[in-house]
């Protein structure tokens, strides 16, 4: 089986090709604001390095978010079009799940993404069980919740600007992520959608106005 993995939910391009349970090529580059510019050309290189054609891929695993709205749509567009046009199997996972699969710890693992203005996207996982569902929340509320659990926890994040302790820097273990979710049920590519976890401001305001 050949798997293609893509995550553009931050300013990084994380992508890899797994063949017969081995990682045969990967890319992990921070493109900052130029992620949309380089994603497709880097993936072209990735396939060249792996000496494999897109036709040979059996299944696509795409990270659907949460994270940068624009970022998510880059990888998501690629994955959707790839799966639809070449008739490939596709499944989605969240960026938080991908983070959790990149460290080994007996503690509660808390993947964390900065959502600005004191908010984060986060979840909490212990021994593969979800303790706090993925959500958009205030960082201080999250820390309160975690402290109430009275267990040791560890954050994993890529956002240096968040002021927290007990933190591990995120470096995706693409092989482990893919193997963990390889058998996850495939979805019709038309129906794959980003996981934003947050309404747009316009929708939020509309909701408030209606409430009044």
């Amino acid at each position: 089986m050949n798997y293609f993995y893509i995550d553009t939910s931050s300013s990084y391009l994380y992508s890899g090709i797994i063949s017969n349970n081995k990682l045969i090529s990967e890319v992990k580059i921070n493109f900052g604001s130029e992620l949309s510019k380089y994603t497709v050309s880097e993936i072209q290189k990735l396939f060249k390095d792996a000496n494999i054609s897109p036709k040979d891929i059996d299944k696509i695993i795409v990270v659907s978010g949460p994270g940068s709205f624009t970022g998510i749509r880059i990888g998501m567009t690629f994955a959707k079009i790839f799966a639809y046009s070449m008739n490939k199997e596709i499944t989605e996972i969240t960026s938080l799940d991908a983070m959790a699969k990149s460290i080994n710890s007996k503690k509660i693992i808390v993947p964390l993404i900065d959502a600005r203005r004191g908010y984060v996207y986060a979840e909490a996982i212990k021994n593969d069980k979800t303790i706090i569902e993925p959500q958009y929340m205030k960082l201080e509320d999250l820390i309160d919740k975690l402290n109430n659990l009275n267990e040791e926890y560890i954050f994993i994040t890529n956002d240096k600007q968040i002021k927290i302790e007990n933190v591990i820097r995120y470096n995706p273990d693409i092989l482990n992520i893919v193997l963990s979710y390889a058998s996850k049920k495939s979805i019709n590519p038309h129906l794959i959608e980003p996981t934003y976890l947050k309404l747009t401001e316009a929708e939020e305001n509309l909701g408030t106005n209606n409430d009044n």
Partner: peptide, 12 residues
């Protein structure tokens, strides 16, 4: 932002 979301939903 709503336009972008609708585009990716519709594209395929």
């Amino acid at each position: 932002e709503i336009a972008s979301r609708a585009h990716i939903k519709n594209i395929t």
